[in-house]
Each structure stands twice: as C-alpha cells, then as structure tokens.
Design a protein around this nucleic acid. Structure first.
Lengths: 220, 220
DNA sequence: GACGTTTTAGACAATGGTGTCTAATTTTAC
DNA sequence: GTAAAATTAGACACCATTGTCTAAAACGTC
C-alpha cells in the first residue's frame, strides 16, 4: 500500500500501522452505520463493506457485534469529551465584550459539541440504546454532560466574582445557558438537520442576549 | 377482501367493539415494544404476546410491520398533539401572579407533554427512525412542535401588550421559555429517567424566574 | 526470497424474524 | 341456535444475519 516512505522509526509499530488503520476504518464505518440504523438494524456486512474490509476482519478485531458496538461508543465518547473540554477551555475568562465573547463561545459550543457528527451520534445512541447498556453511557454521563455543567458553573462563578455577572445559583445558570443556546436549534437537532453557520450565530446571539438580560449586573 | 368490507359494513357497531379492543391493545403493546426496542429490534411475536393476542391477529389488523409501526406513530402523535393543545389552552391569560401562574403552566407542560410516555416515545422514535420515515414525522413536526412555538408566541404577545412582559421577538421568547423549562430536565429525559413532581416544580420555578428577569417590564 | 501474520472471499450451520396458510376454536349478530 | 366473522395455535417457506471455518492471497519483516 504505502511502501513508499519517509522515515520509518520502529518496525514493530510500523507493522501495526496497517492493523491500526483497519481498526480505525472499521470503527469509523461502524459508527456511521450504527448511528443511521441503530444497533439491531445495523449488520456486520454493511459495516464491513462501508469500511472496505472483509467481514472476517471485523470479527478478527472485535470478536462480536456487541463488542464492536461498545468499542464504537467508547471511541465516540472519548472524542466528544475531548472536544467538549477543549471548547470549554476557550471560555472567555477575561472578556473584552462579554456579550460578544459569550456569543462566540456559544457558537463554538454548538459547532464543536452539539451539531457535529459525534454529538448527533451520542444523542441518538444514548436515547435509543441507553436502556440496553446502562453502564456504558453512565460513565459518559458523569464525565461528559455531568461535568460540563459544573465546569461551566465554575467559569460563571469567576465572572460573577469579577462583577461581570450577577448570578445566585451558578449550576442553574450554567444549565440555563446551555438550554438557551439550544433553544433555537432543538428542532434542527431533533430532526437531524445540521444548522448553517448563520443560524448558529443567530441562535447564540439570541441566547446570550436573554442570558445577559437575566444575569447582567445592574447598570452603573 | 372485498367480501370482507361488505360484511363489515353490514355489521353493526357492536361487533367492532371486540375488534376495536384488540386493535387498541395491539396499538398499545406495539408502542411500548417499539419504544423500548426500536423498529428493527421489535418483533411481531413480542408485540403479539405483550398484547395478549395471537400473531395472526396482528397481521389481520395491520397487514405488515411497517404498517403497524406507522399506525402506532400516528396514534401517539395524535394523542400527544391533543394533550399539547389542551395544555396550551390552560395558559394564564389573566394571571393573578404572573410568576406563579407561569410556573404552574410550565409544570403542566413538562408533566403532560414532555415527561410522559408519549413524549418519551416521540423523542426516541423521531430521533431513531426519523430519517427512515421523513414524511411520517414531518406532519407532526409542523402540527405539533412547529405550532406550539407560534401558539406560545401569540400568548406571550398578549401578555406583552397588556404590559405584563416586555418582549421584542415573541417567537424567540417562546422557544426560550420552552428551553428554560427543559434546562434542568434534559439530563433526565435524555437518560429516560422520569423526574419527580418536586423536581418538575423546581425546574419550572428556576425557568420562570430567569425568564421573568429577562422579560419583565422595568419596575414601576 | 522466505517466513509469519493479516486479510480475504466464500461456504457453512444455526438462529430468529417475517409473512402466509390452514384447520380448529371462540366470539358475536340476529 | 345458527351462521358469519374473528381469533387462535401451529406449521411453513423464505430470507437476513450472526459467527465459524477454510484455503488462498496479500502484506510486512528479516
């Protein structure tokens, strides 16, 4: 395949590159198919051909369908969590214009965590297969959505102590911020429509305006 | 086939009572199974035994699985829409205490339309089977969630003209109201946990407080 | 080039589901 | 009570899927 090459460092690792590529290809294809068809509706054959791989290879890597499904879910959850906290770290702690910066942050949040493929996948899978695999999504709930609330709350608390906001309950404010950001997008996300960038910005601006009206300190 | 319809017309309504009961029983059982297992994961056998009916009877009433599924979805959508507009009609148009009355309304909305069995079913099914049956959910989207927005907007508009609220964009305010009501419940609904009445009330109160802070007219 | 590993296509049994058919039984209408 | 209609259990063909197995081919490494 890629016998051409640049600096090859370690043979042992190199040998795994082919395997690793296949693994990733399978994981990716499986995610797409599971997301579209659900667990029961997805067939290994479809996943294999979507991954350009023989069925047997799928079985070689992931013993059985259940196992593959769990690997896919964990993979997507890890990516989603990483993206979530990466986006969280771009929260405007020293804002120039609080309203503008919060809106931009809201756009990033929608774009990177809610409206992307992983976000769609997780909403769909948690809802449709959550009851069948309680333990699987439980850890994600605690480390993902569970933590974003407290993390955002802490960030709002800092803004509040700086006098930029006037918030009594930080946890509630954090949840409300997230809810407001989603307010205009929920119909889209529910029906699987990906909103345009312009829609994202409008939604973010509406959300932040209302949030600020509710939580801005009294004008000087 | 044809002779069947002749005789059915000839028969009085009484004979349909038994049939009708079976139909409803099947519909109910199918809703439960489809909701739990998804379309692909649900089997006619399971539905039949959940309905205490033979498999053949299911096929007699609803030719095929697809057909049964669509009937179930339409049934649930009708119920959900009826409940939605019934709840909407209890909107406080002449509130004693706007905050209290709005909160009570929010509780009714959560309780009757969002956290009940039909709400759960629709969220799950729209998300998991929406792409497979676009036309099926499209009409619901327009007549249900699509209309609740405009209806709520109209109601807020009246409150605004009475001077009880100060809203610039009624549609946005309506969506935000709904979003705020859901803010504290989203985690629960996503994971299929039914919130307690106390949680509903707290969520409603938080939502309305923020909504009022953002949209209450300046104090006299 | 030789070797071990991985991948592949295809056959395969086992399973479980759909939808049909039949013949017997129960329910309902009059 | 009788006749028509509905329901039932069971058998059935058919199909899709899972997971295993095999022998051949491709690949990477030395």
């Amino acid at each position: 395949m890629k016998s051409n090459s640049d600096t090859i460092q370690k043979m042992s690792v190199h040998s795994q590159r082919g395997q690793c590529a296949k693994r990733l290809s399978i994981l990716e294809a499986a995610a797409e198919v599971f997301c579209r068809q659900g667990f029961a509706g997805a067939s290994i054959d479809e996943i294999a051909s979507a991954a350009c791989v023989s069925r047997q290879t799928v079985y070689n890597h992931y013993r059985e369908k259940d196992n593959l499904f769990m690997a896919v879910v964990e993979d997507v959850m890890d990516r989603a969590n990483a993206m979530l906290f990466s986006t969280l770290s771009s929260f405007p702690e020293n804002p120039e214009s609080l309203e503008d910066d919060l809106a931009a942050f809201a756009v990033r949040l929608s774009h990177n965590c809610i409206c992307n493929q992983d976000g769609k996948f997780l909403r769909k899978l948690v809802l449709s297969e959550g009851e069948r695999y309680p333990h699987l999504f439980e850890s994600w709930r605690q480390h993902g959505p569970g933590k974003i609330g407290t993390a955002l709350a802490a960030l709002f608390s800092r803004l509040s102590h700086k006098g930029l906001l006037q918030i009594d309950d930080f946890d509630v404010a954090a949840r409300q911020f997230l809810a407001l950001v989603n307010a205009d997008l929920q119909m889209n996300t529910l029906f699987g429509v990906t909103p345009t960038e312009a829609e994202l910005e409008t939604a973010a601006r509406n959300a932040v305006r209302t949030f600020m009206r509710a939580y801005a300190p009294p004008a000087v």
